[in-house]
Amino acid sequence: MADDVWQVAVFTLTMAVVATLVMLPPGIVLAWLFARHRFRGFTALETLVMLPLVIPPVATGLILLRLFGRRGLFGRVAESVGLEVIFTWKAVILAMAVMGLPLLVRAARGAFEQVDRRYEQIAASLGAGPLRIFFTVSLPMAGRGVLAGVLLAFSRAVGEFGATMMLAGNMPGSTRTIASGIYFYTEVGNDAAATSLMLASIVIAFGSLWFSNRLARP
């Protein structure tokens, strides 16, 4: 594998791992909320979180661009603290995290719903507070399903293209990922590099999906 192809693969994997870590806390909290609570605005929040699954990824990218651009709501805040997001590696992570989050939430929610509430009630009767119940009963018992969701979200992050292109571009060495690399190398007629990246993406996706499916099995 050529050096630049190798660099793109390693960069994509690193960004996908960081994006997965970034989406983990909000993903698990949202999954648990959706599984265990009904509140005002529940359906609206649920729909909002799942939206990236159904709208074109480039549309999600455009929304993020508007939000994190210089004149965007979060862009201005980021700029005021000297943080540059758009067209940097941070934008790659952001795009990957937003696109992977719905898959994590969906799988983890199913896993939390499978945990019999009885165990949480018993833990409460033994003196445990909500946080302790979550970390010692709900999360470990939903662990396999949550991990399956994490792997699914990671796979999605590795394969992310549309939102990343909109938000981070395709700059060699700083924002080029496997997906944008395949697109670029095909465009410029470098079939060997495009094929190498395609094979790398298949191996990574197959491995993580295989683990995810195994974990999701009861």
């Binding site: 009885r118 018993i122 409460a124 003196g127 445990a128 507070g129 010692t136 009963v137 018992m141």
Partner: peptide
């Protein structure tokens, strides 16, 4: 709240934490 009642409850289905 249940956690402050100091009452030990043994349910019919036992519900030991399986992990």
């Amino acid at each position: 709240p249940a956690r402050h009642r100091c009452i030990g409850y043994v349910p019919q289905e036992v519900a030991l934490f399986p992990h």
